[in-house]
Structures are given as C-alpha cells and as structure tokens.
Design a protein around this nucleic acid. Structure first.
Length: 257
DNA sequence: GTAATTGTTCTAGC
DNA sequence: CGCTAGAACAATTA
C-alpha cells in the first residue's frame, strides 16, 4: 500500500508525466466518496491545466489552473494506473484524460480512495516538516503510547502503521513507551529517525520505481513484516497489537513509562 | 468459509 | 468536558 514515501515518489512521477497537460475529461466511476457532485467536480476541473502535483501527509494534491485543488487520499488499497489504449482498469474510481491523449486513473478494490475538491487546509505539520519544539512539546503533553501518537494524523501527518514501526526500531525506543515519559534525548532520537527513515525510503522507492507509477513496490521494511522472523542484525522480531494494528518490535527497544 | 488487511471515524469510558 | 483506547467500517484476497 502507498504510504508517505510512495506518495512522494508518485507525485514526482506524475509531475514528470502530466504537469502542464490540460484536462479534457474527468471520468468518475465511483462517486460515493466525493465531497461534491460529479457535475460540480467536472465543471471545476475540466479544461484546466494541471499545474503541479504535491504530497501532503497521506494525500496527493493536484493543483489545477484557476486555483482549483483536488486532494486525493488512497486509503488502504488505492493505486494509480497510467492509462494505456482505451481500456478502463479494473476497480477504477476516477480517471483523468488529458487533451494530448495521455491519462491516468485511480483504482481501489475497496472503493475507499477519497478525492476531495478544494480540501480545507490542515494545521497538523507534515512528518517531513516537523520542528523540534513542536515535537517535544507534543510528546510532553500526551499520555498515549508513542506509536499511536506518531500515527495520529491530527498531530503529525503522513506516518502510517508500517513506518511507525520502522522509525521506532531505528530510534531504539519501544512502541509501547508512554509519550510524556520519553526523555528529551530519546525524543530527539525519534525525531531524527523520522527524517532518516522516510528520506531513505523515498530514495529507495524512487530508484526502484523509475518511471513506473505502480508496479510492485519493493519491500524495504527492516522490521514491519509478517514474513521476517529476524532483523538483518539477527534480532528476533516480536509482534503485538497497538490500537488493533499489528506492531513489530524487538526486546531491546527501550521502554519509557 | 474465515481471517487478515489498515486509515479513519465514531463511541464508550475514565 | 477532555482525553484516550478500542470497535466498527470498507471490500477483497489468500
């Protein structure tokens, strides 16, 4: 599934392929998640130039001329497909057809992917734009387990279940640690790991994907995997549930509580 | 046939 | 009332 690093790479690929193209037709196959009607969406975007694609949190933001913005959340199973020939991909949600004959579609077998016209700006900072003062302040006032905090999109945008595990493993902090019990030194370590892990993943996915919008993303996980029994260093991986989500960790990650 | 998947939203409880 | 933890939901595959 697509998480922050995948979305960052997708935004770059989409920009290379479609930036500057004029949207001829917006095809909506599944409308139930839209925040506006299909005619409203078409009226807002058709005939506009796609000026740029950015990632924000776990969403892609398609900036069109005239100040129109389409947010897209792929949720659990959403994927992007470059359109070839005139075939409609299986599980299509929406498709963008450009004047020059190219295009791409959003597909989702669970129909959960959510396009939003002109989404409200959100306050919570992106995981790659975190300031140390904000992050340490956040940790200090929350009593929740640190993994849940990292994943709370109202506090920090962009970190999901798998990268939360990777980040905490890298930082050497137990995912069960209580946020406000984490000392400043460990907090700084976690913040550093957020940047290191996410940037590393972006780099690796970028290299692996090239110009492929989809294609299977290689698994770069060091610890968050149902197959792995041991880390590369030979530490045995344990699994447990946090907030109903499978969490992978090793015994030596320091627990603060 | 059933479990697993996982981000978000809703709700119950302290 | 504020905060937190956990359940429910979505739809399909293995």
């Amino acid at each position: 599934m697509a998480e922050l690093p995948d979305l960052t790479v997708f935004a770059h690929i989409l920009s290379r392929k479609f930036k500057g193209q004029v949207l001829e037709k917006l095809e909506v196959t599944v409308a139930k998640k839209l925040n506006v009607t299909v005619p409203e969406l078409a009226a807002a975007l058709e005939g506009r130039e796609l000026e740029g694609i950015k990632r924000e949190g776990k969403t892609l933001q398609f900036h069109f001329s005239g100040g129109q913005l389409l947010g897209l959340h792929l949720m659990l199973r959403g994927e992007l497909v470059e359109l070839k020939n005139d075939e409609t991909p299986r599980f299509q949600i929406i498709a963008f057809h450009f004047k020059n004959g190219t295009g791409f579609a959003v597909v989702d077998m669970q129909k959960q992917a959510t396009p939003t016209l002109n989404p409200k700006p959100v306050d919570a900072p992106d995981a790659l734009a975190l300031e140390e003062a904000y992050f340490t302040g956040l940790l200090a006032k929350k009593r929740t387990v640190v993994k849940s905090l990292l994943m709370d999109q109202h506090l920090i945008r962009g970190i999901g279940n798998s990268y939360a595990d990777e980040i905490l493993y890298h930082a050497g902090v137990s995912p069960f640690s209580v946020a406000n019990a984490i000392p400043p030194k460990a907090a700084a370590k976690i913040l550093n790991s957020i940047g290191v892990i996410l940037h590393k993943a972006i780099r690796e996915i970028d290299e692996a994907n090239g110009d492929e919008l989809t294609g299977e993303l290689k698994d770069f996980m060091e610890i968050h995997s149902s197959i792995l029994k041991k880390t590369a260093k030979g530490e045995s991986i344990k699994s447990d549930k946090i907030g109903g989500r499978t969490t992978y960790y090793i015994d030596t990650q320091e627990l603060f509580h």
